[in-house]
């Protein structure tokens, strides 16, 4: 059970959060201009990395805010947490 440092509320138990999949996948601004393949790339293709992964999380049972997390999936170490719209750490 992770201890997640919500950027708005502070440290909270993982129970209060919901994982929201891979981060930094931008919804295309003009979907109708895209080919089936390009749209499918946005819609379906997600990474499943063993190692450092960028993820979206939502503090569903707290402030309801979405934020980003950098997590090492091999040992579940949370390396960074930052707000939506902020630059991902290098």
């Amino acid at each position: 059970m992770f201890l997640i440092n919500c950027p708005y509320c502070g440290e909270r138990d993982q129970q209060e959060f919901k994982a929201g999949g891979e981060a930094h996948i931008k919804r295309p601004k003009q979907p109708t201009e895209l080919s089936d393949d390009e749209w499918a790339e946005y819609l379906f293709m997600r990474k499943n990395i063993k190692g450092v992964q960028f993820e979206r999380w939502n503090h569903t049972h707290g402030c309801r805010k979405w934020f980003n997390m950098v997590r090492d999936t091999s040992n579940d170490e949370i390396k960074a947490i930052y707000k939506m719209g902020e630059k991902p750490p290098a």
Binding site: K18, G20, K26, R27, R56, N58, T60, R64, K65, W66, M84, G85
Partner: peptide, 12 residues
């Protein structure tokens, strides 16, 4: 949850 997701992440 879904509406909040779009508001906060895609259309802030």
């Amino acid at each position: 949850g879904k509406l909040e997701d779009y508001l906060q992440t895609e259309w802030p």
